[in-house]
Design a protein around this nucleic acid. Structure first.
Lengths: 348, 348
DNA sequence: GACGTCATTGTGAGCGCTAACAATTCATGC
DNA sequence: GCATGAATTGTTAGCGCTCACAATGACGTC
């Protein structure tokens, strides 16, 4: 029970105490079938008594498996990346893997390269890159690394295995919904130019309008922040009465800014202008008014990404470049319906 | 340049190619001083040519250092934990350590214990536990683990090294501010009972009122979510006109719900009721109205935590149980001032 | 020219574990 | 009683690296 702190016990120590060979201890720990119950009990007892824990470095050296995966992420305080990160870790742990993370303030080629080096030094067997910015990810094709890499959120267009929520479809759902509830035209506040997801959402919006025979109005652009949404909202307010009745905003945080700007300009939502966001952050339901938006299944993204990465590590499925798409889901709330008498009712 | 994928090159392979011993390669990699420049160049060239990378497991085995730290966190999609996580990883990486994370959906004693086991299997040298719930953290004192642990956000009251933002002080700043701008009494919407930070904020609020000779009104309680804030806000609205003019809400997300409930009840903020939050999430500035709140320096928390943990790992400073407090900062916005004519101006 | 000193390089022994194989035990059938 | 084979256990040799120490060579000193 008590244990000298000088040096942690080794397998040999346990073996000596249990009166067996170190290999038998290894077998017990590895759940090997051919160990007599009596022997197993003796060993387990000795392990317990000494507080023995297997040395992971020695194990990794002998097996050539570290059972560690790496994740590179940026903007981890945003809801999307944070949710993805969480889902990845949970999925990896379920498979018995440890996850080492590198969080970048800003995703650039240099930083991404450094991050991969750092993870490589740490001996990861594979990496998931949450890399929504195009410029950085394109470099992934060039960068040398001794392990497979899966990208998340960088779109299916690159020569790298990837997992993505179908942003194009999400934008279609949002835009189509606005058309369906009676709007003639839908405006769009897009995300940063460099983000693949922003581009895909804009493309989906445009395609939906064109399919409906409507010419897309000019596109505004923000940087995902509420502030940029607020500024765009002020500009949008100027178009009210000149054909603007509905806006599809590329994320919920910008939608928050738009809502505030419209409110301050005396424009009512949804009576005068309907607004749809993207992401379904937990706060969306409590915006004024509660926001119609598009929900992404991050848990599915995490599971599929880890499964794909493990396939690549194990050398399974070497055919082509796998690309996985996850379907998003429209969540309808008050920002796209006229207010009725239940305006003051408790939120759902 | 080209490299057989069969087996990564070893130090011995590099040594052979460079015409030196493996030990010289090790010296070059370790920046040992006594290596001739010419030799160093030869070795570096060979390393480059073979695409050699040092095997971290073998290194860890020989040095008995994995250079990996663990972090246990929960609620990582919330702004506070996400920011802390980010700061920890950044600080650890600056010290040359890899960070392995375990994100829990809910922090219980069992899950915490499993998380520590998982990290232990991964060979971490120490762990930072972002553990704001009291019940779980108390168990940390009991749990056996072969490495030092530092807690963040669990308050200074436990027999474990800890780093905390001074929640009591933050609550004093918030409450004192409301008193200073003329409110006679301040109400409080507290966080979950089990959270140490919620308790500390409530205590700071209470102490400030008592120091001002005011009897604290009844305390409401929420669960950090906007929804719980909304419900509490509906209750608070009923007290308007009966002495309620100011509320200190224990976090920004609940404050968002309160603001909505008040608005829907026809109560104006801040003219009728002033509201202060806690956290300064990026959205607070865009609430209706922009929210006065208390900002926490997560970057400092991260740096101090890692520094403390490394001290413990290195066996420095074995005196007592270190406790580090970080000062928070009040951020004053429109939710605690009467609206003026600049109500429609662009936010700062 | 013998010797000490320093800088530079090489050698051997682990670090603690697993994998492959060898050895032992034990039950079974003839 | 003994061969046969399966179940169980032990032995040996690495995995790729760092550490401690030994060896080598260049240089200056007396």
């Amino acid at each position: 029970m008590a244990q000298s702190q000088l040096r942690p016990p080794t397998m040999a120590d346990v073996a000596r105490l249990a009166g067996v060979s170190h290999q038998t201890v290894s077998r017990v720990l590895g759940d090997h079938p051919n160990v007599r119950d009596e022997t197993r009990a003796k060993v387990l007892h000795a392990i317990e008594e000494m507080g023995y824990r297997r040395n992971s470095s020695a194990r990794a050296l002998a097996t050539r498996r570290t059972r560690t995966l790496g994740v590179v992420a940026s903007d981890t305080t945003l809801y999307g990346p944070a949710s993805t990160l969480f889902a990845l870790e949970e999925a990896a742990r379920a498979e018995g893997y440890l996850v080492s993370t590198v969080s970048l303030r800003k995703l650039t080629v240099d930083k991404l390269s450094e991050a991969l080096d750092h993870l490589s030094e740490g001996g990861v067997e594979g990496v998931v890159a949450i890399a929504p910015q195009r410029s950085a990810v394109e470099a992934l094709t060039e960068l040398r690394h001794p392990f497979p890499v899966v990208t998340v959120g960088s779109g299916p267009g690159l020569g790298i295995p990837s997992v993505n929520v179908d942003q194009h479809l999400g934008a279609c759902l949002a835009t189509g919904h606005l058309l369906a509830v009676g709007h003639r035209r839908v405006w769009h506040l897009a995300g940063p130019e460099d983000w693949q997801e922003a581009a895909d959402r804009a493309a989906g919006w445009r395609a939906t309008l064109e399919a409906a025979g409507v010419e897309p109005p000019l596109t505004l652009r923000g940087d995902w922040s509420p502030l940029s949404g607020y500024r765009a909202g002020q500009e949008l307010a100027g178009w009210v009465g000149r054909g603007l009745t509905a806006v599809f905003v590329a994320n919920d945080q910008m939608a928050l800014g738009v809502l505030r700007a419209l409110r301050e300009a005396g424009v009512r939502t949804p009576q005068d202008v309907a607004v749809v966001g993207f992401d379904d952050i937990p706060e969306s339901e409590f915006f004024a008014p509660p926001l119609t938006t598009v929900r992404q299944d991050f848990s599915a993204v995490g599971k599929r990404s880890i499964a794909l990465l493990l396939d690549l590590i194990e050398g399974r499925d070497p055919s082509g470049t796998p690309r996985i798409a996850i379907e998003p889901q429209l969540v309808v709330r008050a920002s796209t319906f006229p207010y009725t008498s239940d305006q003051g009712a408790a939120p759902t």
